[in-house]
C-alpha cells in the first residue's frame, strides 16, 4: 500500500481485572485508519468501544488493565512506550474528544487556559503566541466572541459550546489522528448536526484520520468513510460505508439496521434482537458470541470458530451463516419470556 496508515491496530486485546481474573472487553481487534479518513466504530452499549478508544490513548488504569497486541501509530507501537514517551504523542499527534463535555472540562480552570495547557508541553511558544493561537482555535471551532470566552469557566457555557471547546483542545497541536468517543451523544439534535458539520470541516482542512465511536447509525451514515461494527468485543463486520449500508452481511449488522425506526417506512414494526448482550464475565469465549441471539438459525449453519474473512475487496465479515441468514417471519414471539 502506498500510504502507510496513521493508525494500525493489530490483534488488540483489552482485559479488565474483576475479582483477580482478567476479562477481555476488546478481544482480538485489528483495524487501520488512514490519513483523511473517518473510521466509525459502532455497536451497542458495553461492546467495548470506549475500551478500544481509551487503549489507544493509554488512558486505562495500568493496575487493573491488561493490554495485548499492537497499536501502531505511524509505525510506533504505543503499547511499548513509557508514560513519558506517550505524553509526547498524546495531545500533540493524537487528540481525543469525549462524550460528555460538561464532565470532560476542569470546572476550576478557564477554558482558554485548558486549551493552552496542552501547548505548554508540546510546542515551544511564548504565552502571547499561545494566547493568539487559542483565540484562533476558538474562532475556528465556531465560538463567537473568542476573546471573552477565553476567560470563561466551563459552567458558563452551553453544552454545544463546551463540546466545541473540547474539540478545540483536541486539535490544538494539529494532530494527525483524532479519537472521538461519542462526541454528539450528550447533545441535542440541532447541536449534534452542528458538531458533526464542524468535525467534518476540520477533518477536511487538516487531513486528519478520525476514529469516530458511536452507537448511532445515522451519525455513521453521515460521517464515516469506513465502518467497523463491534459486538461483544469483536469486530463482526467492516466495510466502507456505502457497502455496509447497501449490503450488510453479518446478522448483527442487519439486526441493528432493522431495529431503528426508518423514515421511509414509519409505522412499521421494528426488529427486536432477542436476549441481551451478556455481561463481560459471562461472554462466551469460544465460538460465535452472537449465536444465542439468533436462536431460530439452525445449529448446522454456525461455524465453530468464526473468523473475519474478506468476502469482497475491503468488506470483512465474521461468519459464514450470512449466506443463509434470514429473519424470523413472525415477530409475535419477540416479546414472550424475555428472560432466558
Amino acid at each position: 500500500m502506498s500510504n502507510q496508515p496513521v493508525l494500525q491496530i493489530e490483534n488488540l486485546r483489552v482485559s479488565f481485572r474483576v475479582h483477580d481474573a482478567y476479562y477481555a472487553a476488546v478481544d482480538g481487534v485489528s483495524l487501520n485508519v488512514h490519513k483523511n479518513e473517518v473510521l466509525a466504530v459502532v455497536g451497542e452499549s458495553g461492546c467495548g468501544k470506549s475500551a478500544l478508544a481509551l487503549s489507544i490513548m493509554g488512558l486505562h488504569p495500568p493496575a487493573k488493565t491488561k493490554l495485548e497486541g499492537k497499536i501502531l501509530f505511524h509505525g510506533t507501537d504505543l503499547l511499548s512506550l513509557s508514560v513519558h514517551e506517550l505524553n509526547k504523542i498524546r495531545g500533540k499527534d493524537i487528540g481525543m474528544i469525549f462524550q460528555d463535555p460538561l464532565t470532560a472540562l476542569n470546572p476550576l480552570m478557564t477554558v482558554g487556559r485548558q486549551i493552552e495547557e496542552g501547548m505548554d508541553f508540546h510546542l515551544s511558544l511564548s504565552s502571547l503566541e499561545k494566547r493568539g493561537r487559542t483565540i484562533e482555535l476558538l474562532e475556528r471551532v465556531g465560538i463567537p466572541n473568542p476573546n471573552q470566552v477565553y476567560h470563561r469557566y466551563p459552567h458558563e457555557l452551553s453544552g454545544g459550546m463546551r463540546q466545541r471547546i473540547v474539540i478545540a483542545m483536541a486539535i490544538a497541536c494539529h494532530p494527525s489522528l483524532i479519537i472521538a468517543d461519542e462526541p454528539t451523544t450528550a447533545l441535542d439534535v440541532t447541536i449534534q448536526s452542528q458538531i458533526m458539520d464542524l468535525l467534518r470541516e476540520l477533518q477536511q482542512q487538516m487531513n486528519t484520520g478520525i476514529v469516530l465511536i458511536t452507537h448511532d447509525l445515522g451519525v455513521v451514515a453521515e460521517m464515516a468513510d469506513r465502518v467497523a461494527v463491534m459486538y461483544a468485543g469483536e469486530i463482526v463486520e467492516m466495510a466502507d460505508v456505502y457497502t455496509l449500508f447497501d449490503r450488510p452481511l453479518h446478522p448483527y449488522t442487519r439486526s441493528l439496521l432493522q431495529s431503528i425506526p426508518s423514515a421511509q417506512h414509519p409505522k412499521e414494526r421494528l426488529h427486536v434482537i432477542q436476549g441481551i448482550v451478556p455481561p463481560l464475565q459471562k461472554l462466551p469465549r469460544t465460538g460465535c458470541r452472537f449465536r444465542s441471539r439468533i436462536g431460530w438459525i439452525d445449529e448446522s449453519e454456525h461455524e465453530e470458530q468464526p473468523i473475519l474473512r474478506e468476502v469482497e475487496p475491503g468488506h470483512f465479515v465474521r461468519c459464514i451463516c450470512y449466506k443463509n441468514f434470514h429473519f424470523p417471519h413472525d415477530h409475535i414471539g419477540d416479546m414472550k419470556y424475555g428472560i432466558s
Binding site: 493509554g58 495531545g91 481525543m96 472540562l105 483542545m169
Partner: peptide, 19 residues
Amino acid sequence: DFVKTARAKGIPESKIYSH
C-alpha cells in the same frame, strides 16, 4: 473525566496532580 482529558493532552502526571 476531566482528568482523563488532561492525560489525553499529554500532561505529565505531576502536573495533572497539581493543576
